[in-house]
């Protein structure tokens, strides 16, 4: 793990939402950001939230072993990214860690971009780990689809959004979560006017795109409507020598391009 005890690391956290019950919880990616921060510099990591200090789910971040969690007091309709940007440009940490996308609200995932733009710092997206920090330069592993990784070097300070591929967050313990201090910092609020015009409703089920049938004639339409669906059992190879059977599998693997 990177040696970063001397660094000032801030992890930004939001209030998450369980995908099934919709109940407030610690957000998966934000918790990973905290975990990464804890692994980098231990309890010194500063965990920051913009919102309501009375929010219960903040306790589950604190339960990861934080002594203190700072809350920039913001009303529900305020634009948190402005407050966070102001706070960060005042305190100038070395590394800012966020999740990729919030689990509640607009979920636009713009916060890290806006902060990086405002601070004028580079932004590393979807990181899985920070491998090394040396001479003011960090070597970062970026998460790519299908478990692949890309190495990126960047100079401090920077903003990074933490992907689901990062180390899973440690369990939140009830006792320390209860006892941690939630420090409430009154902060200037900027109303989010664009958002005020949004209409929010529970997600509608999106219709699955059907196989499109562009039929020009009645006969074609009829054929499309009555066509037997594909499939119904795959190929079975029985009573053949093993090398032919293996060859059949191998051909399929080649065809699918999973052999590298």
């Amino acid at each position: 793990m990177a040696n970063a005890e001397h660094l000032k690391i801030v992890a930004l956290v939001s209030v998450g939402q369980h995908p099934k019950s919709g109940r407030a919880r610690r957000a998966e990616q934000d918790a990973r950001a905290v975990e990464l921060g804890l692994n980098l510099c231990g309890e010194k990591v500063q965990v920051l939230h913009a919102g309501d200090v009375a929010e219960e789910s903040l306790r589950s971040y604190a339960g990861m072993g934080l002594k203190q969690l700072r809350v920039l007091q913001q009303a529900a309709g305020a634009d948190a990214s402005v407050a966070l940007g102001d706070y960060l440009s005042e305190h100038l940490p070395d590394i800012v860690l966020t999740g990729v996308r919030a689990e509640s609200g607009e979920s636009s995932g713009m916060t890290p971009y806006l902060l990086a733009e405002k601070l004028g710092w580079p932004l590393v997206t979807r990181i899985a780990d920070i491998a090394r920090i040396e001479n003011g330069e960090a070597e970062i592993l970026q998460a790519l689809p299908r478990g692949q990784r890309r190495a990126i070097r960047v100079r401090l300070p920077f903003v990074a959004s933490v992907d689901n591929a990062a180390a899973a967050p440690r369990q939140s313990a009830y006792g320390p979560g209860r006892r941690a201090e939630l420090e409430n910092l009154p902060w200037v609020e900027t109303a989010d006017e664009v958002r005020a015009a949004f209409e929010e409703a529970p997600a509608r089920k999106r219709p699955k795109r059907l196989k499109m049938v562009k039929a020009k004639t009645a006969a074609e339409r009829f054929k499309a409507a009555t066509a037997k669906s594909q499939g119904g059992g795959g190929r079975v190879i029985k009573d053949q020598p093993p090398h032919e059977q293996a060859q059949a599998i191998f051909d399929l693997l080649l065809e699918e391009g999973v052999l590298r």
Binding site: G16, P19, G22, G105, S108, M110, A201
Partner: peptide, 27 residues
């Protein structure tokens, strides 16, 4: 201010998935 995860868009309004996929935002 971008519309993200927009899945129903015309010139006037866009419907976007928000709230971690649990809500639709019309804007």
């Amino acid at each position: 201010r971008p519309a993200t995860q927009a899945w129903q868009v015309d010139r006037d309004t866009s419907v976007c998935r928000g709230g971690g996929g649990l809500s639709d935002i019309t804007r």
